Simulated assay, not measured.
Amino acid sequence: MFCFKMALAVVSIFTAITVAYCFPTAFQELEETGKNRTSIKFLAIGDWGGLPYPPYITAVQKTTAREMSKVAEQVGADFILALGDNFYYKGVDSVDSPRFKDTFESVYTAKSLRIPWYVLAGNHDHVGNVKAQIEYSQRSNRWKFPAYYYELNFHIPNSQKTLTIIMLDTVMLCGNSDDFSDSQPKGPLREVDANRQLVWLRDRIAHSKADFLLVAGHYPVWSVSEHGPTQCLLQKVNPLLIKYNATAYLCGHDHNLQYIEESGVGYVVSGAGNFLDPDVRHWNHVPKGSLKFFTGQASTLGGFVHAEVTQDKMILTFYQAKGTSLYRTVLSQRKLN
């Protein structure tokens, strides 16, 4: 398995590895693969993590969950990408935390949302116990969080095409950020862990033959809102996205919906799952002409993204929780070098 080989390769550089940070590569099975299916569909939602006191959810989370269930039922969804800040404000303390029930299981109850949730950690999750969230994968049949960072591979039904999603831990890579002082992370807690993840990412993205390659993390590469572009990711991750023709980068962190396109890569911010923020203080800090869509207005009641990956394109649709789509764009299949 790749992770074991990689561990051997880097052990002499970074000292002994004590935690399984990455996850063996394998193809995920879609639950329904009929003869007429020709695409993969999923939802992407970030910053959906409720509140640490009763009722443990927000109005935005509740209305967004309801609209997610409708879109998943009517349009279709095979899985959900949970893009971090899963539990406000300090994550969970143990795998037995009641927050798993109060903020997750009791909120996303619709049958259409009882599908795999592929989870990554955000800065608020890292204040608590991320290992507990990983361990919860053994307690829930839909919570899929196998490691701090990992890779997902899918066959697009009735085709020879493939989709790969690389799930990152951008907090481990860049450091935690204090939302109440300076929004930029100050550097990783452990340099060895950050370097190990970066070595892994470089290898996976450089060798990927996937027809559609997505990278997901909590922090944005580009954002016009409160937190703005993440300098660490601009330096360490963005050059890889551009060099290897990644299809898109998906994230949360800023509590709104954004679509930015630059150098052939789509940058999706889907952080409107629990709070809304119309802040645009970094409007001029993204490449000129790259911002294609933004909304953080309270009137939307929340929002999320629906993606459909077909044999030759990826269709992204941005939904508001009050029941209509706001923006749609199409991304092409990768051109492999």
Rank of each mutant, 00 (worst) to 15 (best):
G266H: 15
Q28D: 13
Y21G: 11
D182N: 15
I260Y: 07
G296T: 09
E151Q: 15
T164H: 09
Q28W: 02
G217A: 08
H227V: 01
T25C: 09
T109L: 07
N195V: 09
L257H: 01
V75C: 02
A16H: 13
H124P: 07
F87V: 09
V309M: 09
F275P: 01
G266R: 15
K131E: 14
Y88P: 00
W200S: 06
R114W: 00
S181E: 11
K111V: 08
T310R: 10
V60K: 11
A26M: 11
R37Y: 02
I40S: 07
S140H: 06
H126R: 10
A321P: 11
M172T: 13
S39P: 00
Y88M: 03
L336Y: 00
Q297H: 08
H255V: 03
T18W: 10
C251Q: 05
C174G: 03
T25M: 11
A65Y: 15
T103A: 13
A9H: 13
Q61F: 08
Q184V: 01
A147R: 13
E226P: 01
G46T: 04
K111N: 10
F87T: 12
V268K: 12
Y108A: 07
L214I: 12
M1N: 12
A72K: 03
S332W: 02
R190W: 00
V171M: 11
T230I: 06
T300L: 09
I315R: 11
G228D: 02
Y219D: 01
R66C: 01
D47K: 06
T230Q: 12
G252K: 03
Q160I: 04
D178F: 06
S159K: 13
L326D: 04
H207C: 02
S183F: 07
K161A: 14
H285R: 15
T103M: 14
N176D: 12
S263V: 00
G302P: 01
L189F: 12
L81F: 01
R37T: 13
L276T: 06
T38G: 13
N195H: 08
G46I: 08
V221P: 06
E73R: 15
H218C: 13
G296V: 10
I242Q: 14
F27A: 05
S183P: 02
Q74F: 05
Q184L: 02
P54I: 05
V171E: 11
A20H: 08
A59I: 03
I156L: 04
I115D: 05
Y327P: 02
E105H: 10
R204S: 06
T329E: 10
L152C: 08
K322I: 07
L214A: 05
V10M: 13
E31D: 14
